[in-house]
Design a protein around this nucleic acid. Sequence first.
DNA 1: CATCTGTTATAACATATATATAACAGTTGA
DNA 2: TCAACTGTTATATATATGTTATAACAGATG
Lengths: 125, 125
Amino acid sequence: MDLVFEIDFQSDEALYTQLCNQIIIGIAKEMVHEGDALPSVRQLADAVGINMHTVNKAYTVLKQEGYVKVDRRKGAVIAVDINKLHALSEAKRDLRVLLAKASCMGLSKEEIHGLIDELYEEYGG
Amino acid sequence: MDLVFEIDFQSDEALYTQLCNQIIIGIAKEMVHEGDALPSVRQLADAVGINMHTVNKAYTVLKQEGYVKVDRRKGAVIAVDINKLHALSEAKRDLRVLLAKASCMGLSKEEIHGLIDELYEEYGG
DNA sequence: CATCTGTTATAACATATATATAACAGTTGA
DNA sequence: TCAACTGTTATATATATGTTATAACAGATG
């Protein structure tokens, strides 16, 4: 398991959301691949110092969004199978607000493209 | 006031967040400009059918983020003065997750740039 | 058979969201 | 001056969400 989980208890992001995002970013960075097993809910909960149910909620959300499947033998397993229509419309809604804020900040379209390139470099693409 | 406020009571977004986002997008679309007065908390609350305090929370958040100032005479007024350091680091955090999801969806960097261009067109360019 | 999976149930508590009623100080315009 | 309007603050209530806690269950593993 190449993933390193780090919980920020001061963050305004929910703990389960932090876990979800770290796993999704881990997939994009190719630190984990299809079929890789995630830590068990109890293991991960102990490792980062949170409750089992909080980890379980993260896994449940990831399962609903299509990043994870459950194998009775291996437990939670990476298995990317995303509903693109739904995911894309959600991404657009978020992007609209994000770009509006960027525009208010005075960022040009070119600067935004640069920002995208900078961040996207982290993901093999 | 060119802004039209529409509340989706079925949305998972908080009501005050919906108001914030619509105002920020309105600024980016240049539907409102520096110095324009926003509706009073009571007017807007009545207009969209929510509580005064929910509107007040939206205005308070917008004030903290630097999109609005309060003029004792005019009430809440558009006045874009954003802490770029803070706003940019927040934007990057959001973008990182958004791009990871896009990468998992199989979107190429070029397709993402296209998406940005499409959405950014709504804001004067 | 003991031990590990995810899952479910129940309970409890803190925080966030939203509403309701009420009041206050400053500003405006009649 | 005075009524009507600002944002702001205080208090209370209701509901939803997030998090923890304890416990149990069925299926798979070795």
